[in-house]
């Protein structure tokens, strides 16, 4: 997708994603691809929702007070959320991005019925 390290990217929640706070973190639902994603750590939820206010993931982690020793695990979590289209690169004049595909068939549905 890009050769820049994820820590340097300007990111945001996908506009088609809604977050619902839960005791374990949050439920993320993507209205486009109908995927339900369990965000299993409250700190990751806090970072994900703050992304759009900062120039990069690194700046967001600093602003959220995340100790640098923990950055690799956060970076991994954010990459995972990008793969499920919960988070995307923010369009900027310097680094325009293409929107993630939203036409793929849904792969998760109602759970535990």
């Amino acid at each position: 997708m890009t050769e820049r390290p994820t820590l340097d990217l300007a990111l945001e929640l996908d506009p088609q994603v809604a977050l619902r706070p839960e005791p374990f973190g949050a439920l993320a639902y993507h209205y486009g691809n109908r995927r339900l994603v369990f965000m299993k750590h409250p700190d990751v939820v806090a970072v994900a929702t703050a992304l759009s206010e900062h120039d990069s993931l690194a700046a967001t982690l600093t602003a959220c007070g995340v100790n640098e020793a923990r950055w690799p695990s956060f970076e991994k979590a954010i990459v995972g959320l990008m793969e499920s289209h919960v988070i995307r690169q923010r369009a900027t004049t310097e680094h325009p991005t293409t929107a993630p595909p939203t036409t793929e068939p849904p792969t998760t549905e109602e759970t535990a019925a």
Binding site: R20, E22, L27, E110, T111, A112, A113
Partner: peptide
């Protein structure tokens, strides 16, 4: 999840 959520998922 077994302890229940504030609203249903499904």
């Amino acid at each position: 999840l077994k302890r229940g959520l504030d609203a249903p998922i499904c």
